[in-house]
């Protein structure tokens, strides 16, 4: 079975984030060449990230990231010049078992009864086919 691959994130067609030059480029030239950053650091607006990845899905296995490159560009606070460019690939990433605990939220869950009531009146009122009994048409046969 052929893997179905999907490409997501930053499109590095003509210009590639890696060839941003330290000291030469500024925030405006980077934004002109690459467009607005994929993400910026949480508390430091002067660190930009450009990121893209390719995911592959084979049959029923969970989609797996097969290629990823992330480029972190740091700018000087006042002169807005590029001070540092570092790029990372898939092998720099760490495999993390994501924590399963979740902070609880509020809100009324929809009860099963509520949903069933909504379905009243949408069923067929016709008796089933008497052909149901024929082997091959029985409950449990391949649907």
């Amino acid at each position: 079975c052929a893997p179905i691959s999907s490409y997501s994130g930053f499109q590095a067609i003509e210009s590639d984030p890696k060839d941003v030059k330290v000291g030469v480029d500024t925030k405006s030239t980077v934004r002109g060449k690459l467009g607005s950053p994929s993400a910026t650091s949480t508390f430091d607006p002067n660190v930009w990230f450009y990121m893209n990845q390719v995911k592959e899905r084979v049959a029923f296995r969970r989609p797996k990231v097969v290629a990823r490159n992330v480029t972190a560009i740091a700018f000087d606070k006042d002169s807005e010049q590029v001070t540092d460019v570092r790029s990372y690939t898939l092998k720099d990433g760490k495999v993390i078992a994501y924590n399963t605990r979740e902070t609880p939220t509020r809100g009324r869950e929809m009860t099963i009864i509520e949903q069933m009531l909504g379905a009243v009146g949408h069923g067929t009122m016709l008796p089933r086919d008497e052909e149901e009994g024929v082997p091959g048409n029985r409950p449990g046969d391949r649907r």
């Binding site: 508390f43 992330v70 990372y88 720099d92 990433g93 993390i96 979740e102």
Partner: peptide
């Protein structure tokens, strides 16, 4: 939800390998 959001950012940045960024979020 803020504590969990910061924790998830640590998880995400570690997954990407941006260890420096993960450390910053953990510190906050």
């Amino acid at each position: 939800h803020t504590p969990e959001a910061l924790y998830r950012l640590v998880e995400a940045y570690l997954t990407l390998g941006l260890v420096e960024e993960a450390k910053k979020n953990g510190a906050v």
